[in-house]
Design a protein around this nucleic acid. Structure first.
Length: 229
DNA sequence: TTTTGATCATAT
DNA sequence: ATATGATCAAAA
């Protein structure tokens, strides 16, 4: 009999990671926070990453803001995803910041997007704002890697977006570009600027951007899990 | 109601 | 400023 406690060390195998995640399914965020010794905020307005941090603790992720996969030894990334009562995503999923300079010769194969998404533990969490944060339940986890079709979709969008960035068109990119992967601001606020390439090859300053998975993509991946799994 | 653009907290 | 964790909220 193993008791329900946060993993004190990183899991040693995918099986151990998945088993721990499965133990959490059905429990509320309030229970998990209490048992992890964390206070539960009234809402997420000023604690947007709180659920992710809470689940990192429970699953023994190498804590904090290291530029690594959450489970470096396993090559696995953790993503919590807010879902509605039917299991459909309520938000897009941030993947990583987009490199706006130094992109000569970059390829999909060596991209940060592909690396981050190579292996992901998805943990759905009830996300409707009508449900008090402490009462929201954790769902069944899904250990996922992109199918050939999914990788192809991601690669097409990534290449389109990166082409525009390299050609100095970053400021013409909107969230409407891309079928499954989009580029949107990822910054503290609209005054934070970073270097990029301008339309005439010059250095410009623009908002930092991030790659996000659109809801159609994550919805399909979760649906496949719930229908087949 | 849904999506796009903006934003919040923390550590380094 | 960048990287971690994302959700908020104005606009369409």
């Amino acid at each position: 009999m193993s008791q329900l406690v946060p993993l004190a060390m990183p899991p040693q195998s995918e099986a151990q990671l998945l088993a721990q995640a499965q133990q959490l399914a059905g429990l509320t965020l309030g229970e998990l926070a209490t048992r992890a010794g964390l206070p539960t905020p009234r809402d997420l307005k000023r604690d947007k990453g709180w659920i992710g941090v809470l689940l990192e603790r429970w699953l023994g992720a190498s804590a904090g803001s290291k530029p690594e996969q959450d489970f470096a030894a396993l090559g696995v990334e953790l993503k919590t995803i807010p879902v509605d009562s039917r299991g459909r995503p309520l938000e897009t999923t941030f993947v990583c910041v987009a490199p706006l300079t130094g992109n000569s010769g970059v390829s999909w194969e060596t991209s940060h997007v592909r690396h981050k998404l190579n292996r992901v533990l998805w943990v759905p969490v009830e996300g409707e704002r009508e449900i008090p944060l402490a009462e929201r339940r954790v769902g069944a986890p899904l250990l996922w890697s992109p199918s050939e079709e999914e990788e192809q979709q991601l690669r097409m969008d990534w290449e389109e977006l990166m082409d525009l960035i390299v050609l100095g068109q970053v400021e013409r990119i909107t969230a409407r570009h891309g079928e499954v992967l989009q580029l949107r601001p990822k910054a503290a606020n609209s005054k934070a600027l970073t270097e990029a390439i301008g339309a005439h090859g010059e250095l410009i300053f623009t908002l930092p951007r991030g790659f996000y998975l659109k809801k159609n993509f994550t919805a399909a991946l979760l649906a496949r899990h719930f229908l087949l799994g």
